[in-house]
């Protein structure tokens, strides 16, 4: 069965792979996945991002310890140019800094999320 870009994206994640799109016409890196480039209307092809990026902004969501404790929400600008929401792992959320270089750390156990960690 033919699938739309959203189902294809989550199929990639289910196999542990992260993919974004690039516009065939203008070269724009596109996230989240769409049928047409939101900048120029061109067609889109899947690409494997190089895995690096920089934190655009971040917050720590405060949550009671018995409910799982605080956690990180961040927006990361990928090296390709697209921005996505993620969680920064491997460091305390309060230590995440805007401008911090980060690297892809894998797909979350729910296979619906992608995780990043500080660049070594």
């Amino acid at each position: 069965m033919e699938q739309g870009p959203e189902a294809q994206y989550f199929s990639f994640l289910a196999r542990g792979n992260h993919r974004i799109q690039r516009c065939d016409a203008c070269g724009e890196a596109v996230f989240y996945p769409r049928l047409y480039c939101p900048k120029c209307g061109g067609g889109l092809s899947w690409i494997t991002p190089v895995g690096t990026g920089v934190v655009y902004s971040a917050t720590t969501v405060r949550r009671k310890p018995e409910q799982g404790g605080d956690y990180s929400i961040a927006l990361v600008d990928l090296t390709e140019g697209a921005r996505l929401m993620t969680r920064i792992v491997d460091i305390p959320s309060e230590d995440v800094r805007i401008g911090m270089p980060v690297r892809f750390a894998g797909v979350g156990p729910d296979t619906r999320t992608v995780l990043y960690r500080p660049e070594a």
Binding site: F10, F31, Y32, T59, V61, I73, M85, T86, R112, T113
Partner: peptide, 10 residues
């Protein structure tokens, strides 16, 4: 919003 909700932003 499948590209935001799973991260549970408040």
């Amino acid at each position: 919003q499948p590209y935001e909700y799973p991260y549970e932003p408040l």
